[in-house]
Amino acid sequence: MIINVQDPSLEAHNLTVIYHRKPVLWNIDFSLPKGEIIGIMGPNGAGKSTLIKAILELAPLNSGYSKIFGKSLNEVRKKVSYIPQRQTIDWDFPASVSDVVMMGRYPSLGLFKRITKSDREIVRLALEQVNMTEYANRQISQLSGGQQQRVFLARALAQQADLYLLDEPFVGVDASTEAAIMQLLRTMKNEGKTIVVVHHDLHTAAEYFNWLVLINASLIASGPTEKVFTDELLRNTYSGKLTVLSQVGDVMREQNFPVREK
């Protein structure tokens, strides 16, 4: 069940990623609609985060390519916002909440442009949207997990992008923050933004997402939630049917084989 769309927000063609000679993503090929909240789901180690990173060129591509709004990443970088996993960051860093949110303005400021009043106003609004106004001057090491996630979201909002890529935003976050984030994502969707979320909790998937991408090293399904969220497809994704694939990967790594003949 792989449904392709016209005029996609994000498309991937034959994406293959190999880390240290071990394939993580095989031949991923999909296209995603605009203006939806899209979930990327799969078991642990399925390559969900890697997929996002590959699209953003943070992970090395071994073959294939991706396009965003029909263009290459370099042409549309400013319209793309990436929210890394909160845990990858050292939060004991000399920065206040508003310092971090201001980083969302860096892409348009570049290395040298001065911060203007309108940048500060955008930061203020972003903090307001995630309900963190009163924490603006708080040192980031004093924040709870949920608050850290809100700060990251505010930073993304300050980028004023059209496509948002969130890597596991609900991990280690309290229920009220999760609800607040979902609320905000829906508001953003209503403003026409496209939101792609790496997610692992099956219980909330159907409720959160309009479109689902199921992967387990390879693409299992991509389509509207009501068509993709079926027992059979989920079983295909989460059962270990791909053990042969990972065995092949192991052999390739051991014997130093290239993935593609040249």
């Binding site: 060129e57 943070l58 793309v80 990436y82 860096y106 892409p107 290395l111 040298f112 930073r155």
Partner: peptide
């Protein structure tokens, strides 16, 4: 002083910096 913004960003969150196209 000139590169402070860039140094600050890569010290805090290198992946984000790379994704936004910082050099």
């Amino acid at each position: 002083a000139i590169l402070l913004r860039g140094f600050y960003l890569i010290s805090f969150d290198e992946d984000f910096a790379r994704a936004t196209g910082f050099p």
